[in-house]
Design a protein around this nucleic acid. Structure first.
Lengths: 199, 199
DNA sequence: GGTCTTGTTGATCGAATGATCACCAGCCCC
DNA sequence: GGGGCTGGTGATCATTCGATCAACAAGACC
């Protein structure tokens, strides 16, 4: 009758995985200030067990960061942006379509914001990486396409980027209604961004 | 020789003011999870005294919200947006110049974000208010100006808004370098937004 | 200058939190 | 099927947190 709790022995790697998975969801919701006891409960585990897999809370937090940040930037995006066999408009739309698909999740958006407010260095490093690896090349493609007709500032690129990211902020941070399909919004934003290129 | 601490009796209203002022700065920095003892220290006051002015921490938090949110939207902004004796471009630039001047502060941007992550209802209400009072009329002005040539979606307006607000997010949340003077960035963004109106 | 009001403090309480440790029990292996 | 390795637990510790309260003292008033 009662919810019999069966104690299951798990492979350490699998258990660690389960804990990290639960921690990502938990910290995304309540922030890193949330008590470890509640996290343990969500992971279906005792609080003491957490400290068999992580020396302290900070280490668990690091593991969550690693999980959330690592491999979030797909290597083919840069090549895709530079593939001049396609129109630039199409390349930008494709990139932001895939990028938003990658980061517009409850977990990523919120953990990124919690970490930002906490002043975590990983956050700034991620954005500097994004800037160097993708946004600057994006500007380079515009420069090549414009052929002197227009010299965009990096701030123009950041403006495009921010306008799109703000969709995710509205949805996952502010809990405001946002279009289910962001594709048309991205296309409109990219269109405005590239408007100076039109003859 | 030692920093002699002189106990000063203050008018209750003034003391309350000091506490709220310190609380705004403190919570903006560390979030509402920050301990009341450290806040009291920053306010130059004992922790016990906080509870003479606020029944509990939640009430102090409310006072901080009230201070930060209240009167942040200037009443003349709506009239300024609707003043058709000026070009729409100029009206939008003026509005966002004043709006960013009002909210691009360390305290406002960060408390707004902490509150958003905490799921505070005031947050959503503020944005719905902003939407109804300013963004929707903005779209209305564009509609009037376009006279059928272009029918912008609310998402286009949100995109303009988000692209500009993202400047403050980059600066105060992510601690990234951002142009000191945002005026040119605003002008460029407004220009792109209104591009469909150009013949 | 004495007295009374009340703004302010130091001490302290109970609850919650991160972290530890002795001990238990599931599962593999012979 | 019975040791034994080790994943897992319950109890507990030290600290920190929000909150309370009796007692103190600064300043106004006569």
């Amino acid at each position: 009758m009662e919810g019999s709790i069966i104690r299951r022995r798990l492979d350490p790697a699998a258990r660690r995985e389960e804990i990290i998975h639960a921690a990502v969801a938990y910290f995304a919701e309540v922030g890193f200030g949330g008590p470890t006891r509640e996290l343990a409960q969500r992971a279906g585990v005792t609080q003491a067990l957490l400290y068999k897999y992580f020396a302290n809370k900070a280490e668990l937090r690091e593991a969550v960061f690693e999980r959330v940040y690592l491999g979030r930037i797909a290597p083919h995006w840069l090549a895709g942006l530079r593939d001049r066999s396609l129109p630039l408009h199409q390349r930008l739309c494709r990139f932001y379509g895939e990028y938003t698909q990658a980061i517009f999740t409850y977990e990523w958006m919120r953990i990124f914001m919690w970490a930002g407010l906490d002043g975590d260095a990983l956050n700034r490093r991620y954005l500097e990486h994004l800037n160097g690896l993708l946004l600057t090349p994006m500007r380079g493609e515009v420069l090549a396409e414009a052929a002197g007709r227009w010299v965009p500032e990096m701030e123009d690129v950041w403006n495009l980027h921010g306008g799109i990211i703000y969709l995710g902020i509205r949805r996952f941070i502010y809990h405001l209604p946002v279009p289910e399909d962001v594709t048309p919004v991205i296309e409109a934003a990219v269109g405005r961004f590239l408007a100076p290129l039109r003859p």
